[in-house]
Design a protein around this nucleic acid. Structure first.
Lengths: 336, 336
DNA sequence: GATTAGCAATCAGATATAACGAGTGCTAAA
DNA sequence: TTTAGCACTCGTTATATCTGATTGCTAATC
């Protein structure tokens, strides 16, 4: 669609604007290696690119800034996605090799690493419990009226919760509970833990509602409970010039303060490996002035949740996407 | 020290300024019920109060604002600490009666409640593990090379962690581990889990270093690990006029982004039930433009950690202190 | 002696005006 | 097709002026 020179002009403007946060003028562009033309020629191209909607002006006599369409074209067609240095590769590798006992800890490490390398605010959410199968469930008596349930899933995730009772229970009972639950739950999806199961177990076993009901309720709660959200480098955004606007700064704090919103951000559509939402492309009204880049990460082939970056539309897409691609690959290759 | 009328003037200025965030002039004060004097009289009193350091001017012909000394006097001598409405009492009571299975969940609920009622940013940290005694430690085999350790403390706190091994272990071994650890750890402080214990157990038991060492290491880690920090209502601060200053806003984000700093804030001196640090009174340089109010909360007589509010020096001390006092009492009375 | 009315002096903040300059669009020449 | 040239635009910055809230002080009053 765009001829070669127009592509070069657009690319140069996007990258210059990402670097400087200042509207880019025709004379500045003549400095560019790839654009050995006079400023007048560049100006004509810029006017064309504006007519086709790739560029915008902040006012009649200002330089140009990319429109959302411009950023989109840049992301889809023009950027380098291997924009990552040897030092960065080394740093990431070291970080990802940290030994962890619980696989979830790796999400936190990855989130921090991404934020450190890209200098953007990074968020992450743990894996969804949907599609998980129960591998085993263990009950441990912690006191006469206190039981711990430990659920092991087929992906190696471990969830545990404490259950309190209004009457005493003994080891013998726990053994039966252990047996019955495992009998019924092995290789079932987590969602099976619900009212019908409760009724079945109450009928089947001789124990009262007062024993079975709290177990089911509490396990259900821990399965459905808000997934852990990680947030790193919120302050990094405040070093960016767009955060000199109080409205932008305030919007941003509202976003990161709202866990539900962050969950939604991280859970929205996943067509590709790495998903880029620029400004209005975001479903959420609150994000229309920001860009969001997310990717679902897996360790080996185990789903580990989603990591995302939120920053200004003038984001260094090339750097962020390169880093995410590299990390994505690195984690996939990783044994656990 | 201050005569009665000066106290009234100071109190009126502090409270008016807390309400409006605007310097208070002598004419405005004549509206006050308690100050039926002419503006000239008030002016003279204000000049005196400024000379003694309780008030400040933003410029020669502006109204007065309280100095830190003024706030301090207000907090120590003038404020009402039962400034809490029936609706608020009802709301708090309801919230605090929420059933929780783990006592830590109560800290989160309390934090949210305080933030909702005061409209200030609220932070909290879980209890210190110092002084805790081990009541019991349980080991559960989750896989051939995976063990869960569950530590019960004398305060009802439960910590659990997963330990991975490089060689298989069996139920028989776990039983021995269970026995030996409990033998050695019951009613001991958590800190006992360290290298000397490791050496003792390796000598005493026939198991290799490869079994004992990971257990000790991982338990030690979970005990020493950063205590959970709760943060609520960060965005609420951004509704305050002082956050229109970019410097203030940025400082604030830096504070709440820095977990270590927040931990330090919540761990600093605890002379009284409720501790108020106004501006420069804060140990941390970063907080010199803010006020911090903290209190250690207990459920029954069990230490639950510390909750704090961070806001502008122009904070509604009366409301915050009243709410904290009430919650403090309510939690102390609470059975678990 | 304490209180108050009156008034000049002060100064932040709002409003108005002018000068500056980066950058554009367009025309005509190369 | 490219480029030089130039009038024009408009945000930004600097400067001056005006406004109004508030003070400090003096002298009159209670």
């Amino acid at each position: 669609m765009l001829d070669d020179r127009k592509k070069k002009v657009l690319k140069a403007i996007v990258e210059e604007y990402i670097n400087t946060a200042e509207p880019v003028g025709s004379i500045a562009l003549t400095q560019n290696e790839d654009l050995k033309y006079s400023s007048a020629t560049i100006r004509n191209e810029m006017a064309d690119l504006e007519k086709s909607g790739y560029l915008e002006k902040t006012h009649t006599s200002s330089g140009r800034i990319p429109s959302e369409k411009g950023y989109r074209y840049y992301v889809d067609e023009l950027l380098k996605d291997d924009n990552i240095s040897l030092e960065e590769i080394k740093y990431i590798s070291e970080k990802l090799e940290t030994k962890v006992n619980q696989i979830e800890d790796l999400t936190k490490i990855t989130t921090t690493t991404i934020s450190e390398i890209t200098h953007y605010t990074t968020l992450a959410i743990g894996p969804s419990t949907q599609d998980l199968l129960i591998e085993e469930i263990k009950f441990v008596l912690l006191g006469p009226r206190m039981l711990m349930a430990i659920i092991l899933t087929n992906t190696g995730m471990i969830k545990e919760t404490i259950i309190k009772f209004e009457e005493d229970i003994n080891e013998k009972q726990v053994e039966t509970i252990n047996y019955m639950f495992n009998q019924k739950l092995k290789n079932q999806p987590l969602e099976i833990i619900d009212v019908p199961l409760e009724e079945y177990l109450i009928n089947e076993m001789k124990y009262s509602v007062k024993v079975i009901k709290p177990i089911i309720e509490q396990i259900k709660k821990v399965i459905l409970q808000d997934r852990q959200i990680y947030l790193e480098g919120a302050n990094k955004s405040f070093d960016l010039p767009e955060f000199n606007s109080l409205t932008v700064a305030k919007n941003f704090v509202n976003i990161i303060d709202e866990k539900d919103l962050m969950t939604d951000i991280l859970n929205s559509g996943f067509a590709k490996d790495i998903n880029v939402y620029i400004g209005d492309e975001n479903e959420k009204e609150e994000l229309k002035d920001f860009s969001v880049i997310t990717f679902k990460h897996k360790v080996g082939d185990k789903d580990m949740g989603t990591i995302g970056i939120i920053g200004p539309k003038r984001m260094d897409y090339s750097k962020v996407i390169s880093v995410m691609k590299y990390i994505n690959k690195k984690l996939k290759d990783k044994g656990i």
